[in-house]
Amino acid sequence: MSLKQKITEDMKAAMRTGDTKQRDTIRLLQAAIKQREVDERIVLDDAAVIAVIEKMLKQRKDSITQYEAAQRLDLANIEKEEVAILSAYMPQALSDSEIDALITEAISETNAVSMQDMGKVMAILKPKLAGRADMGKVSALIKDKIST
């Protein structure tokens, strides 16, 4: 079953059980997926759906930060619930040691020795780590390894 099919099935289940929070969050996700499909005139595969979910998660995390700074904990809690629902569709996250091993492998594969080679390393890692690691954190780890 593809990720889009799973999302549709979860939507139906949420409607049957009357779980309005999950239903509404899944509707937002489906709308974002459909919007991207219409804009680009393509049918999204699982990797592209994960990219949509990642974008939505990032937006929600940014909103949580802003709401908490403004002392709007009620709105922050709503966003946190949406993050929990959306996170269920993400692939299993990699451990720090697995990420470190992939970074080391990519650096040796590209013979990266300076910061100018960072793009080559990221190009190799991005498909392997999509949805499974925070790319900002990965970027910082690569910088540390290349600069030392």
Rank of each mutant, 00 (worst) to 15 (best):
Q59Y: 06
D134P: 03
E79I: 00
E105R: 12
R27H: 10
I53N: 04
E37A: 07
L3I: 07
K120N: 13
A70E: 14
L44H: 05
S114N: 11
M90P: 02
K80A: 14
M90F: 09
S87H: 03
I42K: 14
G18M: 05
I26A: 00
M56F: 07
K4N: 07
N111M: 13
R16G: 00
K137S: 13
M1K: 10
Q59M: 12
R132T: 01
K6L: 12
L94W: 01
L44E: 00
I107A: 04
I53A: 01
E105N: 09
K80Q: 14
G119A: 14
E68R: 15
M118E: 09
K58E: 12
E54G: 09
G119S: 12
K4H: 07
M56H: 07
D100Q: 14
L3G: 01
Q22P: 06
A93P: 02
E79T: 04
S95G: 12
I50H: 00
R72D: 15
E109A: 15
K21M: 11
I142R: 02
K137R: 12
R16F: 11
P91S: 08
I78C: 00
K6V: 07
L75P: 00
G131C: 02
Q30V: 04
I103L: 05
E68D: 10
T25V: 14
M122K: 13
I26P: 01
K6E: 12
I99D: 03
D134A: 08
D144S: 11
A112D: 07
M118L: 14
D19R: 04
L129E: 06
A31L: 12
A88I: 05
V49S: 00
A133M: 01
A130N: 12
R16V: 11
E9L: 13
D39L: 13
I99E: 03
V121Y: 00
A31M: 13
R60W: 03
T8E: 13
L57P: 03
E82I: 11
L75G: 04
T65D: 10
G18V: 05
A140S: 14
S2Y: 07
D134N: 15
G18T: 06
D144Q: 14
S63Y: 12
R36F: 08
I42H: 05
D19P: 08
M122H: 01
D96Y: 04
K120P: 02
R23H: 10
A106D: 05
K80G: 02
M1Q: 08
K80S: 10
I26W: 03
L3R: 06
K4G: 04
L57N: 10
E79G: 04
R60L: 15
T65L: 12
E109P: 05
G131Y: 03
D96M: 05
A112E: 02
D62V: 10
T104M: 09
I78K: 11
A123M: 09
E82N: 12
Q66R: 14
A130H: 09
E54H: 01
K61T: 10
Q92R: 12
I146L: 13
S147R: 12
T110A: 10
A31Q: 15
M90D: 00
I146W: 02
P127Q: 07
T148D: 13
S147D: 08
L57I: 11
Q22V: 11
